[in-house]
Write a protein that binds this DNA or RNA. Structure first.
Lengths: 205, 205
DNA sequence: GGATGTGAATGTCTTCACAGCT
DNA sequence: AGCTGTGAAGACATTCACATCC
């Protein structure tokens, strides 16, 4: 079954809200409360959830703990992920220092760069290695997810190295599309682009 | 005229590619080349551009320098923006250290936090001030854009302070929807969510 | 000949509205 | 009575395909 990107993103938002509700001791929750909490409509919430089954009880709502479990399962968050970062420039080092990912089960295992001035540095407990070692390291210790934070020119080549080494998921901060095999998932993040979208919005009001 | 979010995002991608082509001395470019460069179709490129006028010449393509100018104008990038960051935790400090925004005309003018241990620190030339001073500072020196990187609980209150102080654009890194007046534009970024979308993708292949 | 600009067709996502459980 | 689950309708975005112009 094909599930849209936007539905997946909302599931992730529902989950975070549900975990909060759970900590506060809520036993059940309605689609309407979930909707308000993440900024959508109750119909949308029900559609999203019904893609994966009937988790609610009519007249009652959804069991908070049950839904938390179900969503963690659907999203694949019951496990931990090994993440490698390639490119330790401005964005890469910011991401490594950020470390907020660890709380959600995404552990940055190692980092790579080409620049000899950066290789060998330690950030947030992660030692930066030479990108030449990337393929060899991955052969020994596979990674689940790679974050590409190189300049635009280098991104495609890095992506190919990663794909050959068996990495199946890439989060790309470089502002270029990546050509990768069908079975590799790629998501793009481009913070400058978000600011430019705000710039556009400012012009038009 | 109503232009979709995704069109705007693509315009931003076209622009970056065009700037690169421009540096390489390209005089004209076809919708097909633009499409390949950003990972879409030529029909999509033409639709996006035609929303704002007829910039191309049939049989020839688009003038690179002219289109750069047009897009910078459409996106509102001919000017510089004063940006304030509220919340200097993991994400906030990463963003301030990142400094890649400056290259695109977005200058981080100041930063704010509640934590006395953080207030007074200097990151990347930006001194962190007490969030109590936020409203007063904005009254003296207005900001165009605010980045909220506080914990989820604090985000809404900060957004209200910002809106009252006349800020019309917010980039929100907190994983909660923000209720703001109609005339304030809000964009959300949630990096954990991107990783969770990859986690989902990994499960389903 | 070659590439744009754009109606029409198609595809996708969201909202409506209500039957059906609890 | 209350709230879910879901077909149907509607809104929105993308793709097609071709007339149009350089």
């Amino acid at each position: 079954m094909r599930v849209s990107e936007s539905s997946i993103r909302r599931l992730s938002l529902y989950l975070r809200l549900l975990e909060e509700l759970s900590m506060r001791g809520a036993a059940t929750v309605s689609s309407d409360v979930l909707a308000r909490g993440v900024g959508t409509t109750s119909a949308q919430v029900r559609k999203d959830l019904s893609l994966f089954g009937s988790f609610g009880k009519r007249g009652l709502g959804y069991s908070v703990p049950a839904l938390v479990g179900r969503l963690r399962d659907i999203l694949g968050l019951e496990r931990r992920y090994r993440v490698v970062v390639v490119g330790v420039g401005k964005m890469g080092s910011a991401l490594i220092r950020y470390s907020g990912f660890a709380e959600r089960g995404f552990r940055i295992a190692s980092a790579y760069d080409v620049d000899p001035a950066i290789v060998g540095r330690r950030l947030n407990g992660v030692v930066v290695r030479d990108v030449q070692q990337l393929a060899g390291d991955l052969a020994r210790e596979p990674a689940d997810i790679a974050i590409i934070a190189t300049p635009a020119e280098a991104a495609q080549e890095v992506a190919e190295t990663l794909a050959r080494a068996g990495v199946k998921a890439i989060l790309n901060f470089a502002p270029v599309p990546l050509a990768v095999p069908q079975d590799v998932a790629v998501k793009h993040v481009n913070l400058a682009l978000e600011l430019e979208a705000l710039s556009y919005a400012l012009r038009n009001r």
